[in-house]
Nucleic acid binder design. Structure first.
Lengths: 352, 352
DNA sequence: GCCCAAAATGACAACGCTATCATAAGCGTG
DNA sequence: CACGCTTATGATAGCGTTGTCATTTTGGGC
């Protein structure tokens, strides 16, 4: 008698946790019927189902999802690795992933790599063992070992962020280059000709690199000076943004507009202007990137490029769910685009 | 022969995923020895270990943590439910939890309840089935069903946030009441006598309620008017903060200082002052709450109360880890305190 | 009343790993 | 060289669930 102990006690109280067997015993059916009643109730007679439901309530039974995952080899977990969690950039994306997953009863397991590709690899190594059914990554740069691991795992992968380049599997995002270039073009239409670029740190940061590339391409096409670039040594923040902006002005005092690779940096720049008593946009124009809520509220509000962070997360999750539901495994890139948000931190465009 | 199929193929290639058995076969040992080599290498002879390591590398074996969790009934997962993930308030706390857990090879499973206690209950219902080894909650208000579930699960629980009241199990945080009261007292020392309070939304939001309580207690003790309160209808944001601040001024135009229940609200208030051309702190004093980085960078920087969000997360995780390591299960509250950060958005204190 | 399909339920085994206990091998000691 | 003692390895079984297939029951249609 495998279940002697449990059968003898005849109750769920053996260790405080009821099993299928306990519920089945109480309802007078077999464990498999209880399992069915919970997962596919339409296959169980109404009367039986009612008895089972009572028994579940009486025992306080909670299905053991670890056992279920094990047996069915479906963990019901999606793993995500993001550079940081306390930056609204990624937090909003995660929120999108989370919301979409929740609607399909999947859980989200989150890892934070602090923009380090090596750390990303480590996190994935830990995650893969938990047999996630899909993976969401940030960016399209990964170590060879990461790529190998993911290929071997044979699960769908969505990269979020820049849409450029060949996806590992699937990809959702927008073109960083095009977005920055479009913003530069807009600033040019506003009459700015000496546009500086305040760039976030470049190490292991593909996004920053692509934004820089987009800036360079655009100013060159427009025949503007292409060397007005300062790069943040520290992670992008309001303070480091202000400092980098100050450095830009020191180096090129005649700069008429500063394009910042993140709204946070632009906010720092704006505060620096306020400290100096420089009117914006009369003394200098300021533009940000991302379209954070904060950028709409500053005085003056910041011109920026809005990217659909939340939707990127939703779409990433939706792509994974599609695969899990049987969609064919073909490479895909989804471009969610961007929107220029003209505001008062730059002069109005000419002839518009 | 249970393993006939696998033994005959003699390789890991049966479905792309190697098992302990495959590695053992290749290394010429039994599966249990491989298991030991991975978990307690010191119990395996060096030569054997070397062969096993080679076999692991050759097969690309990744331990199945689902199976491990199942068999050992140790999931290696901690569940956390927070009101939101894209508010640095909670994101930083989560980061603290995550960092501490990672050092001990535990994973973090995150749920977002949007300040709804009912949603918290739903999330926990989904989580408990995954047999987390511990739970981190936000706040100390929970539905009866939530309390019952947690009690039944028999796992350690840490509540983060306000330190007041009896913990469900363990608790880490600070006293919202005392922190706000201390800030009011500080503003009083600065000479402010008509201090208004801009309060975040109160629904299901224990923190906001406690901050309000702290404000009320303090102004009453100081003999100040205690009715200058406006409450945000919408979630706390820069815009809603600005609007609520405007409402405060409309209702009580002689207000000489606005205490905001969050730095974000205070930033909104500051921007509103900038729009009106009101000098801060000369026309009106502004104070925030939380001690966000942003508050230090505005012009002028905001007086606020710093609370150790990241450390609260770390400590919460540490408390759980302690329990898992065998610490006695007794109720505990850890008070991490707070720090008043006097800045230029308020007048300097008198006689100091 | 009989037959056959559909509906409802059950028996059995196995997922990959590790807890437990047992066995084998090494090794200094009297 | 038998003894105990440590070190190294293995055999067995089972964690709680569900996939697969088998069996029983139900319910018309003739």
């Amino acid at each position: 008698m495998l279940r002697a102990k449990r059968t003898i006690t005849g109750s769920a109280a053996h260790d405080g946790r009821a099993t299928l067997h306990d519920v089945a015993h109480l309802a007078g059916v077999s464990p498999i019927t209880v399992s069915r009643a919970l997962r596919t109730p339409e296959l169980v007679a109404a009367a039986t189902r009612a008895r089972i439901e009572t028994a579940v309530a009486d025992t306080g039974y909670v299905p053991d999802l670890v056992a279920r995952s094990f047996r069915s080899s479906r963990s019901g977990v999606i793993a995500a690795v993001v550079p940081s969690i306390d930056t609204s950039q990624y937090a909003e994306m995660l929120q999108g992933v989370s919301d979409e997953l929740r609607r399909h009863h999947l859980e989200l397991m989150v890892g934070v790599n602090g923009l380090s590709l090596v750390q990303e690899e480590k996190l994935l190594r830990a995650f893969i063992g938990r047999r996630p059914e899909g993976v969401v990554l940030s960016g399209t740069e990964h170590t060879p070992a990461t790529r190998a691991m993911l290929a071997r795992a044979g699960i769908p992968v969505v990269e979020t962020g820049s849409i450029s380049g060949r996806p590992l599997d699937m990809k959702v995002g927008y073109s960083e280059e095009k977005a920055v270039a479009a913003l530069v073009a807009y600033l040019h239409r506003c009459g700015y000709r000496r546009i500086g670029f305040v760039c976030g740190p470049l190490d292991d940061n593909e996004r920053a690199k692509r934004r820089r590339k987009g800036y360079l391409g655009a100013v060159q096409r427009l025949g503007l000076a292409a060397d007005r670039i300062v790069t943040l040594p520290a992670p992008a923040g309001v303070r480091s943004g202000a400092e980098a902006f100050a450095a830009l002005l020191e180096r090129w005092p005649d700069t008429d507009c500063a394009l910042c690779s993140s709204d946070i940096i632009a906010v720092g720049a704006l505060f620096e202007c306020q400290r100096r008593g420089w009117p914006v946009p009369d003394r200098i124009g300021l533009a940000g990137f991302l379209g954070l809520d904060l950028a709409a509220e500053t005085v003056p509000p910041l011109t920026t490029v809005k990217v659909a962070r939340y939707d990127i997360g939703r779409e990433a999750a939706a792509l994974l769910l599609g695969r899990l539901a049987g969609a064919p495994a073909r490479r895909r890139s989804v471009d969610l685009g961007f929107t220029i948000l003209p505001r008062q931190s730059t002069r109005p465009p000419r002839g518009g």
